[in-house]
Design a protein around this nucleic acid. Structure first.
Lengths: 334, 334
DNA sequence: AGGACAAATGTAAGCGCTTTCATTTCGATT
DNA sequence: AATCGAAATGAAAGCGCTTACATTTGTCCT
């Protein structure tokens, strides 16, 4: 391995000078600068980043923890973070939590051990208390797509209540009255918010959302299928369903077909997330979109600012959900 | 920051001893071991990984370069690599190339600068010559899902020819004779292999694949749509189409519908990859599956072995494509 | 010519660890 | 009790950089 010492010898200068032409070129005379460039070129010198980071006590990298890499949900946000940082020459390194609280904790620790200058974490297994503890201890943590009240300034998230409200209003505007929802697990804060907004908007329209019209599933296709079957069996008369993600919505549509119901004629369905599946399934799914990439870049920018102790006031924290109309909602038959 | 020195002082031992209890616990007496554990516990000591890596001249991490994070195609492979390494305590750090040759080069360099012990790269912009150059210089490089002849032992890839053959045989077995293909860009080696296998199998059945029945598209949905429209316009009589990925296949199906053709009754379609979209689109797409996760884990294991100069002979390099029958292929009408 | 000041460079300490080598400690053996 | 070898520990060098500080060189005045 060719080191800075080799270059300095070949160029006939001190290592300090070599280091300077790399990091503060304006501090050194043009002639010696050329000398160094030539030498380092000839030797094929590449600075050892580990050594540099140790000496600088900063790594110029942002860590990111996500549940997994396979789901585009995280992938898009990751790409967003990356996009926000690539221009500044900073790097992002990502680690997966494998969807457990222990994993989330471990990943954060590992990223801290690596001396990341800031860390963006998507956590939905760790509870508020544990998360708050971590955020208190480490001021360079950013929470991705989740709100942790006491550390609001370090959270970037979707307005899930708005999302729920939009879904409800669209269904109401289309003339529906008998409305149900396939919600995600109660442990997810997003789920609680979406439900709140949804129920709220129904209430404003004089419509109730009794517990019997809230059915839980696990965000999977199969879960959506089961949920809809349950719902139709128990609650006849339902003409519209709001599912908390697109997969469950598609599952619900499949189940509806199997039960002889046609979508949207007999049953309107609205999803959440606007992942690729929403635009590709047939009929194309009406859904609530969330700007995942933008959320990612905001996290990246926030983390970057935090790590340099720069001003963060200009960075957007709350993003709006948006109704994406496609083909699965229509007026109810009667 | 609490360092190893702090711990050593608190425990009343030397830093060497603290280091030993962390890395070679059996070398130190049980009593002093406890002493150190208690001290490091009380101080909340966390070893600085950067410093450790510098001293060890090894980072115990594998770098991975992929086109982007957003596509599950790469995400699944990444997850595979991660899965292969997590058990051994090694980490993976990933970087994106942003789909350019320059980006691929830059990402590899960056990962090398970070002293990754081995690097797994998915490259489809860099050409064979450039890649060979890199592989010659760096013996710790592994090529993911691509074959580079002179460095076969460091490549893990799908048998794309087999994939093409399977597609052709399935179509032939279903009774088709007028067969066309929507291929990816010629620059992709996968594309060339798939085409080779496809044409070969047709040939064996006495069927030809004239250039007029090969249409190129860019792996996108829209590209698939356009390609099919072209094809039908120019080549009447085609009853079956093999698309080089699922997105183009779905695009083709959409275009077919728009032209009043029904799938599979008027036109059979077979895709490639078996991504989520294949199972979710309606009608569900018949396709050629590739074991992306397994390919990823094989890359991870190979990289790990390479970095330790361990035996790699047991690691699988070539993976078989597999026919996944769903609903878009049937016998031709006549 | 001499001095003051800025610009350019070098010296060396230090970042937080690991590891070699030397030293000490401790049973076991005579 | 003396001796020996193995086990446990410590001292210190070193990993490849950066940077504070000291030194040298060059420029411009008077």
């Amino acid at each position: 391995m060719v080191t800075i010492l080799d270059v300095s010898r070949k160029a006939g200068v001190s290592t300090a000078t070599v280091s300077r032409v790399l990091n503060h070129p304006d501090m050194v005379d043009e002639k010696t600068r050329d000398l160094v460039h030539v030498a380092s070129e000839q030797l094929g010198y590449r600075p050892n980043r580990i050594a540099r980071d140790l000496a600088r006590r900063s790594s110029q990298t942002i860590g990111v923890v996500v549940n997994n890499f396979a789901s585009p949900y995280y992938g898009v946000m990751l790409d967003g973070v990356d996009e926000a940082l690539v221009a500044s020459g900073w790097n992002v390194i990502a680690e997966t939590s494998r969807e457990t609280a222990a994993g989330e904790f471990r990943a954060i620790q590992s990223l801290m051990d690596r001396q990341c200058d800031a860390i963006v974490v998507h956590a939905n297994s760790l509870d508020d208390a544990a998360l708050a503890e971590l955020f208190r201890k480490n001021p360079k943590l950013v929470l991705m797509n989740r709100l942790l009240e006491p550390f609001q300034s370090r959270c970037v998230y979707l307005d899930n209540e708005l999302g729920g409200r939009l879904a409800a209003r669209h269904l109401i505007a289309s003339g529906h009255v008998d409305i149900a929802t396939i919600a995600g697990p109660e442990t997810f804060h997003e789920v609680r918010s979406r439900l709140k907004g949804f129920a709220g908007a129904l209430g404003e329209a004089g419509l109730a959302l009794p517990d019997s019209r809230i059915v839980r599933a696990d965000f999977s296709l199969a879960g959506g299928r089961r949920a809809l079957a349950d719902l139709i069996e128990r609650q006849s008369g339902v003409t519209a369903v709001f599912a908390h993600n697109d997969e469950m919505a598609v599952g619900a549509i499949e189940a509806a077909y199997q039960m002889g119901l046609s979508v949207p004629d007999d049953l309107s369905v609205i999803g959440f997330d606007d992942m690729t599946i929403a635009s590709l399934s047939r009929p194309a799914l009406t859904t609530i979109g969330q700007p995942l990439r933008a959320i990612g870049t905001a996290c990246g920018r926030l983390a970057h600012a935090l790590s340099r102790e720069a001003d963060t006031s200009e960075i957007r924290r709350v993003f709006d959900a948006e109704l994406i109309e496609r083909e699965t909602v229509s007026e109810p038959r009667h």
